[in-house]
């Protein structure tokens, strides 16, 4: 069943077109990764989907029903984990979770169970009475997640939930997200950490300038770009002539020398490594360690969205 359906959404801020006929469809049970550089329109798209921002054109349906600011039945099934930690400084961990849960669940005893479960889920047991300012960055992130999922939503929007946390906390959070998904929640996940998206998302969309540029599974996205693999070969003596020779090979996209390693980006093909090694042998260049890596999501992202810096005028 399609849980989220967005069709030809247009949103303008004056002259700026934030969303330009943006379309998206998310099936139930997915962890859907939404990728895009800063200012690409991710947050605007999510705010429109949540009914927080009016839009100029297009349609949005959640669970098969049109989403409006007063669609309270639909809102009751949604959870949101914003990028910034959104809690009350004056309330304890338990009070914060209880407050946000109370916006969805009015029954006190049921809420108490849900709050307990949320505290266990994110691993905040023992910190219930702590105020946010007493918590570390990682614990704050966990509290932020607990506030968004305590009411057991079936559709969860997570906006960069792992920003500025240590690797252990990141692992804990990612495992939690996968667990939520296994329990039946559909998750829309935005992040700048490509390896995270690669690891947990079943489908990924890359957007820029308010438009969807590509979407599919991790493998499908990688297949969309021309790059086949990246070779890293430790070489003893490489000169400009050798680099030029490598670049002239038909399957090579680019070749550079980086800290004693010859780095070669190759097109999709069966004999890339063999071709390069044969060339090195012919030129009498001795080589040591050899690494061959498939393209990463980061390569896909950079190829699709470009390498120019964002957040600049």
């Amino acid at each position: 069943m399609t849980i989220v359906s967005v069709d030809s959404l247009v949103k303008r801020y004056g002259e700026l077109v934030a969303l330009d006929h943006f379309s998206m469809a998310i099936e139930g049970g997915e962890i859907f990764g939404l990728l895009g550089p800063n200012g690409s329109g991710k947050t605007t798209a999510i705010n429109c989907i949540l009914g927080l921002l009016p839009y100029d054109k297009g349609t949005i349906t959640l669970f098969g029903e049109p989403m409006t600011p007063t669609s309270y039945d639909l809102k009751a099934r949604i959870g949101i984990v914003p990028q910034n930690v959104a809690v009350f400084e004056e309330l304890s961990v338990r009070e914060n979770i209880d407050y946000f849960c109370s916006l969805y669940v009015t029954d006190k005893s049921r809420r108490r169970e849900l709050v307990d479960e949320a505290i266990d889920f994110v691993g905040l047991s023992g910190y219930e009475k702590f105020r946010p300012k007493k918590l570390s960055g990682g614990l704050l992130r966990r509290l932020n997640i607990a506030c968004g999922i305590a009411h057991k939503p079936t559709l969860i929007f997570m906006d960069e939930p792992t920003v500025a946390v240590d690797p252990q906390t990141r692992n804990h959070i990612l495992e939690g997200i996968v667990r939520l998904n296994h329990e039946g929640a559909t998750i829309i996940y935005t992040s700048h950490y490509m390896e995270e998206v690669e690891e947990i998302c079943s489908r990924i969309m890359i957007m820029d300038h308010g438009r969807s540029l590509a979407q599919g599974t991790n493998t499908e996205l990688k297949a969309m770009i021309g790059m086949g693999e990246r070779l890293r070969i430790e070489v003893a003596n490489a000169d400009d002539e050798l680099i030029a020779n490598v670049r002239s090979l038909p399957s090579v996209i680019s070749a550079t020398i980086d800290q004693g390693f010859l780095c070669v980006d190759c097109k999709t093909g069966a004999h890339n490594l063999v071709d390069v090694l044969e060339l090195l042998q012919c030129r009498g260049v001795s080589f040591g360690r050899i690494y061959a890596e498939p393209p990463t999501l980061n390569d896909v992202f950079l190829e699709i969205t470009g390498t120019e810096l964002r957040d600049e005028r």
Binding site: N47, L50, Y72, K75, I78, I80, A86, F100, L103
Partner: peptide, 13 residues
Amino acid sequence: GDVRRRNLTAPLS
């Protein structure tokens, strides 16, 4: 900003 966002996402007028 984000507490406001959370409040408005909830089924509460």
